[in-house]
Computed example of a mutant assay.
Amino acid sequence: MARLSWLPFAFFLILALSFAIQTANAGKEGSLRLQDCPKACDFRCSKTHHRKPCLFFCNYCCQRCLCVPSGTYGNREECPCYNNIKTKEGANKCP
């Protein structure tokens, strides 16, 4: 019976490591899943008066980068891919 005493410890260790990995990737580029994009973009575009185009372009960018910057404005440095998508004129495409 003493040989099985390490099993609970091993289970706890694996569980703690998986949680740590998920937490370390939170908010970083590529940390979202495709199904998370609408919710993240809904919050990102919540304070704009141009909601429909904001949601369209935010979802487009999120699907390409799997990242949306935190907040409703700014913080683009959190998602370099999101920040680097430009229009033909060189302006930021992603809200």
Rank of each mutant, 00 (worst) to 15 (best):
E78W: 10
L7S: 04
F9V: 14
T23R: 00
Q63R: 08
F9Y: 10
S70V: 11
P80Q: 07
C79Y: 06
A16L: 12
P80R: 06
G74T: 04
Q35A: 13
K47S: 04
S70K: 02
L55V: 11
F11L: 15
L13N: 04
L66H: 02
T23W: 15
P53F: 12
A16S: 14
L66I: 03
S18M: 11
D42L: 06
N92I: 12
T48C: 02
L17K: 02
V68G: 13
N75V: 10
K86V: 04
S46R: 02
K88H: 11
C41H: 13
L55P: 00
Y73D: 11
A2N: 07
F19S: 15
C65E: 02
E29I: 08
S18D: 15
C37A: 08
S5D: 12
C62G: 11
C67F: 07
W6L: 13
K86F: 14
A20I: 03
N75W: 07
E77A: 15
A91M: 09
Y60Q: 05
F43C: 01
P95V: 08
R44H: 09
Y60M: 11
A20T: 04
K28M: 14
S31G: 15
R33K: 14
L15S: 11
L32C: 03
T87R: 09
F9P: 01
H50G: 02
F43V: 13
R64V: 09
G30I: 00
D36L: 14
R33G: 01
T48K: 01
G90N: 12
C58Y: 11
I21Q: 03
G71C: 01
L15Y: 15
K52R: 06
T23I: 13
V68F: 15
